[in-house]
Design a protein around this nucleic acid. Sequence first.
DNA 1: GTATCTCAGGTGACAATGTCATCTGAACCC
DNA 2: GGGTTCAGATGACATTGTCACCTGAGATAC
Lengths: 218, 218
Amino acid sequence: MGAMVTRAESAALTRRALLDAAAELLDLGGPEAVTLREVGARAGVTRGAPYRHFMGKDSLLDAVATESWERIGDQMHALRADPALPASEKLRGALRALIGAGRDQPYRYQLLFKRPGHGPGERGEGIDRVMRQLCGPEGDPAAAVRASMRFQDEFLAVVAAFVGERNARHYGALLLAGAHGIADMELSGHLSEDTWRTTADELVDTLVRLVGDTGETA
Amino acid sequence: MGAMVTRAESAALTRRALLDAAAELLDLGGPEAVTLREVGARAGVTRGAPYRHFMGKDSLLDAVATESWERIGDQMHALRADPALPASEKLRGALRALIGAGRDQPYRYQLLFKRPGHGPGERGEGIDRVMRQLCGPEGDPAAAVRASMRFQDEFLAVVAAFVGERNARHYGALLLAGAHGIADMELSGHLSEDTWRTTADELVDTLVRLVGDTGETA
DNA sequence: GTATCTCAGGTGACAATGTCATCTGAACCC
DNA sequence: GGGTTCAGATGACATTGTCACCTGAGATAC
């Protein structure tokens, strides 16, 4: 079989390999472990090659975060579209999905809620970098924002089906913040069952119950 | 006035200066901006000096986190001991204090909920490092844990005064996770008022109201 | 009071890493 | 077929964490 030959296909393959390698290294040892040299090596290229596809390490990680948001957004969409589940179960599933994502890939999860960097790149402004910025590879931080907004919309729809359109946004924010707080505290070791005598699942149930009791009637 | 002369006093001053410099740099540009060389420079010493007081960069940041936990723990204690406030206001104040800490010093706040590193140090095991580990400067990651547990105890007491001892732990975890989620989402830009049509303060109020309605009677 | 010790701090060195400028060869277009 | 484009390779550089070793002044023993 004639394998990839066209340059565009080859580049697309490399790009994908770079993203996969970055995500894998991220899962293994966090952002510090994501080395452009190692990413390149795992993708079968050398250290400088990633700069042909991303503006730098930060942009590469941004792209990983974007794909993570898209995946979680897809999960939300699937949950919302499932006709077999009642609204309360959809909401519970949504919250559990978020917490589960944190458990499965902690570093990738934390990347989702990373503080956005100040501007595109904080290093020097070489001629090559300017060229890349203008017409070069992707370096669009807004992509992650768009993907996260898609997730938020799906999540919001799940909430609205439970508490109604009127209070959906307020309670949606509360529920999302609650789930994220649970996930993040669990990851950082601050939700020790020994201290709080409860579990993430119980907290999710309580959260949904509290919102359901007063949210629906409000 | 005879300034510091004894070696112990001088060392204590340096240690404090190192901590202050690290915290300042952290506030300015995040963990990446905390350079041992710059920390040393601001403290009036050179790049190698910090290793006489901390086991490395991670330990230095751990110490900063410990002091932050202690400070927030003190805030909780002050709130709890204030006889002029009703229990609901103490709780609201506690949650708002956490979120306010996040607003005031975002990077220091995020340091509090940072995933603990795997082990003491992941670099080489030189003879000097072993010596330091055995009898050298502080490198106790448990210090931050102890400080955070003190905070948790104070927070738990505030919650207990509101919902009663029986459900204090469960609702305490829920409230703490909720407040942290609100703070962290605000810092990462995921609590945009434009999207959710609500604010952190409103979310805190709702959180307290929900817990108060069904928590007290449960 | 002197000799010795202790240890905070200084210094040189090294490896890892992000980044850039330049080069190269093959796919691409005419 | 010749020129062009661009993914990728390579050399280079600055920054940074870390370590081994050195130094000198305060602390201690006698």
